[in-house]
């Protein structure tokens, strides 16, 4: 297509504006979280300080920041592990015919389409009717998996669609058992994608709010804690918390991306060298 002329530059400008729209607000609260001790929730900045970050780690901080952070991290790690394992197994299953494959596919997609409030309400009611107390490691874990697994399975679909089956046949011809083929041929090749599935599982769980609302039980996860803060905190400590969580999410994404790139490069070197 036409890649010069005013139309091209206008489109690039539109793209740049979108990026500003996407990141502008986050950047604003990042700046405002360094607000001076007398500053408020909006500009102007009244000096620059780390006061609100210190505030965050003081023991009398509103709510239970430390506890909710710990719970959210543990939950995200469990969700990550289960999402990788279950998506991989399902991805392997869907390469062949099995009874109920179509039904399972639609049920999995339904996890994306059914509104979060229904998942939350349904799981809450189910635990209520069964007489079980909801908790972050039971009901909230299940609620998160209904959100992360569809993404994981869809990624595995894309991965196995592009997978070269000749490699597996070669392994089989050389006498490898199915397990050996999976362990030494398939897994090393799809490892970067599995890391990607793990990243999705971790991040989506760590930030999940609407599915967790009724399913978390008495102890809040971090997003629930942040939401509770929005209604009763009117100082920039809210922004400090927001900046911390966002920085953490970015750090996770960047680390994982660099790991995947390193894995790809290593594999490339091995194949050519």
């Amino acid at each position: 297509m036409d890649k010069s002329g005013p139309r091209h530059w206008l489109l690039l400008l539109a793209f740049a504006l979108f990026v500003v729209f996407l990141y502008g607000p986050t950047l604003t609260i990042f700046i405002l979280s360094f607000q001076g001790p007398d500053g408020g929730l909006t500009f102007p900045m009244r000096g620059v300080s780390l006061r609100w970050f210190e505030n965050l780690f003081e023991p009398q901080m509103v709510g239970d920041f430390g506890g909710s952070l710990e719970r959210s991290l543990s939950l995200a790690l469990i969700v990550m592990g289960l999402t990788v394992l279950i998506s991989l197994m399902a991805g392997l299953a869907f390469r062949r015919k099995f009874l109920g494959a179509t039904a399972l596919f639609y049920v999995t997609i339904a996890g994306l389409i059914v509104p979060s409030i229904l998942i939350s309400l349904g799981i809450g009611l189910m635990f209520n009717v069964a007489g079980l107390p909801p908790a972050w490691w039971s009901s909230a874990l299940g609620a998160h998996l209904t959100w992360t697994l569809p993404f994981g399975v869809l990624i595995m679909f894309a991965v196995f669609n592009r997978f070269d089956h000749a490699l597996e046949e070669a392994a089989r011809d050389l006498g490898a058992s199915p397990w050996q083929t999976l362990r030494y041929v398939v897994l090393p090749l799809i490892a970067p994608s599995l890391v990607g599935v793990g990243l999705f599982g971790f991040s989506l769980s760590y930030d999940e709010f609407s599915r967790t609302v009724m399913a978390a039980g008495s102890d809040n996860t971090l997003p629930l804690e942040v939401y509770a803060m929005t209604t009763n905190v009117t100082t920039p400590v809210l922004y400090a918390l927001g900046s911390m969580t966002t920085l953490f999410s970015f750090a996770v994404v960047v680390t994982v991306t660099l790991t995947v790139l390193a894995m790809r490069r290593k594999r490339g070197a091995k194949l050519t060298g």
């Binding site: 197994m89 399902a90 392997l92 869907f94």
Partner: peptide, 25 residues
């Protein structure tokens, strides 16, 4: 049998935390 077993965990999670909750609603 293998693909049925491999699909089982996904069935379990989606069944227990999606289908049964909706049925409960």
């Amino acid at each position: 049998l293998a693909p049925h077993l491999q699909a089982l965990p996904l069935w379990l999670v989606m069944g227990v935390f999606l289908l049964i909750p909706i049925a409960t609603i």
